[in-house]
Design a protein around this nucleic acid. Structure first.
Lengths: 348, 348
DNA sequence: AGCATCCATCTAATCGTTTAGAATTACAAT
DNA sequence: ATTGTAATTCTAAACGATTAGATGGATGCT
């Protein structure tokens, strides 16, 4: 709890001199410099970051805003974000919003309150559009990742969800499936909308009618998806899907378990395909076929874009769509042969 | 980017008055109050948290220091911590240390630098002892969770690891196993030491010799544990374990996969038991028998203790050891019948 | 009217830094 | 000794809030 004044007094110099040696910002005579350094060590002094932040008007911290860190998708984003932040001498604060409007508002207060210099938002929802737009107008450095808000002039990075869903459906069709259901997610969320769109598109293109029951929300979570799958597997044979595409791997785990509980064999009687490619999907006892989204790359890129923007606020906003990849494992029974190459689409 | 002065000017009052209405700290005439509120809304003003923090000497934030948020054990701690912090009007900053001394030091700088008011440390290692002790001496509010530093006078919460390991070994023995290996973790880490101690104790008590190979580190991670398991399963029959206890569930997944890859059936030819009870361990295709550590409770308690200490720095430090629980699933083949009741041990 | 009381509001100091710009010192050249 | 110049070091003003303590105006009482 020593302050710069204590150091100055102890070393017999002015506070300015102490500041100069701490920050290496002006030349200081060798012996004074030594005395200052000694005093710092002796009193275990660490400059008060809050005072410093107030004076220089920056915090050397950014926020990473996620909906729920408990979803294994996000810790990976966090590590990548942290990694590039560290390179720039920055620290990252992870904030959960639980997809709640007021929690996002609280998170963004950290920006307005000067506690962080910028934020990468991965939990944007259409209902947050106004708030984010306002912040942008006020000039705060923001970037959207994973969940975009279309039509907003802001730096953005997302995966090519639409194409991913198309790849998934086409892969299933190449295996002979026609009755393909989609256990989707929260309405209006970017990820859900784009993936649903891809699903619908691919189904339509193949001339397959999509029953209403085939498109039900499992919220991308285990339990709700489990429930939806049970419903799906109880449909009359004419409508009962032979394949289920899931909004997320987490949801796919729920579907897998529902199948098991109902004695439906996977991939024998049912093909299951996920989205994300979490670490756990590769376990020998899971072996989930899935669409991998490059989350490390996505987060690194988003964070780099944030730093670029903090360095130059007049940059033209960019949006980057990263290609996804079909990872063939065991839950569809097929081999990699039938999988189409992912189509890359960059810089919209 | 409006400041309190802008609001004062716009509302035609002094900055003090603005502050009074923002903080509800003195009575302000109705019409002035209204004018101030209007100005705030109009300019989209949010008080600068940094300036406020400097003046009142607190940040309303705490740190949760973890070794690696990518390990699903930690996000759960984070949510619980956040939950109680929120109740106290606080925000939590999650920081990864990667079990690196200098990263922990950086994390603790946030405390010394006044950016946070306290910290719950879940990544303490013996090599951090001096630094933590020093901080404690300087009066900073700290609590240790999950990983303790024995003999340090500091608020602490951990699981009863020793007893957990004993329960696991005894359960395996009740199933007839004698050749039981332990895929352990980083030397000297509290968690590893206590769990190894329990393992060794139970083995000794049963009069079973523990071969050196039976106690090898898998670092509590998937890949290293996978490798260790391969080694274990290639031991000559006399030494080859029929059961493997793992430091963590994550490690157990590696062991499970090694067994699968080597054509060793679980639980037929090998029993596997984990530690933690991650969400994924309950999946139908995993069904890992494990020792559950009450991480939500642990984190909530630790955070509550931190707030108690911040409220009264003279409290006598407490150490709480929470009971663990054997969760019988499918990887040992046994039923719940043989499981002993966990022994609770509180307030050392 | 004179005075005390009470409210509401204001002025200015403060928190711990950074950093212009002034002041001081050292030293060489005359 | 005087002066000029360069090299150090210092003083003091920010940064944007909070909050004692001062001030001023209204009201009530004698």
């Amino acid at each position: 709890m020593a302050t710069i004044k204590d150091i100055a007094r102890k070393a017999g110099v002015s506070v300015a001199t102490v500041s100069y040696v701490i920050n290496n910002t002006r030349w200081v005579h060798e012996d004074k410099r030594r005395r200052v350094l000694e005093a710092i060590k002796e009193l275990n002094y660490v400059p008060n970051a809050v005072a410093r932040g107030l004076r220089i008007q920056k915090s050397n911290a950014i926020s990473l805003i996620v909906s729920n860190i408990t979803n294994p998708f996000y810790p990976d984003l966090a590590r990548a974000c942290e990694q590039v932040a560290l390179k720039h001498g920055y620290t990252v604060n992870i904030v959960n919003t639980d997809d709640d409007r007021v929690k996002l508002h609280e998170a963004l207060k950290q920006l307005r309150g000067g506690r962080v210099d910028g934020a990468v938002i991965t939990s944007a929802l259409p209902e947050n559009r106004d708030e984010i737009e306002q912040l942008l107008k006020e000039g705060y450095p923001l970037v959207l990742a994973s969940r975009l808000l279309e039509g907003l002039k802001v730096d953005s990075v997302a995966a090519d969800n639409r194409n991913g869903a198309i790849m998934a459906v086409q892969y299933l069709m190449s295996l002979g499936h026609r009755r393909i259901a989609f256990v989707s997610g929260v309405k209006h969320s970017y990820i859900n909308e784009t993936r649903v769109e891809g699903y619908l598109h691919a189904m339509k293109e193949a001339g397959i009618r999509v029953y209403r029951e085939w498109l039900t929300s499992g919220q991308g979570l285990y339990e709700p998806s489990y429930q939806v799958a049970r419903m799906l597997l109880q449909l009359p044979p004419r409508k009962r899907p032979t394949a289920i595409l899931c909004l997320t791997d987490l949801g796919a785990y729920g579907v897998l378990d529902a199948a098991k509980d109902m004695g439906v064999s996977v991939p024998g009687d049912l093909a299951v395909i996920g989205f994300d490619d979490l670490f756990f999907s590769g376990l020998r006892n899971i072996q989930l076929t899935t669409i991998r989204v490059p989350r490390h790359e996505m987060s690194m890129l988003a964070t780099e874009m944030l730093f670029s923007r903090m360095a130059d606020r007049n940059l033209e906003p960019r949006t980057v769509i990263l290609p996804v990849e079909l990872v063939v494992r065991k839950t569809c029974g097929g081999s990699a042969a039938a999988a189409g190459k992912p189509k890359a689409k960059n810089s919209v």
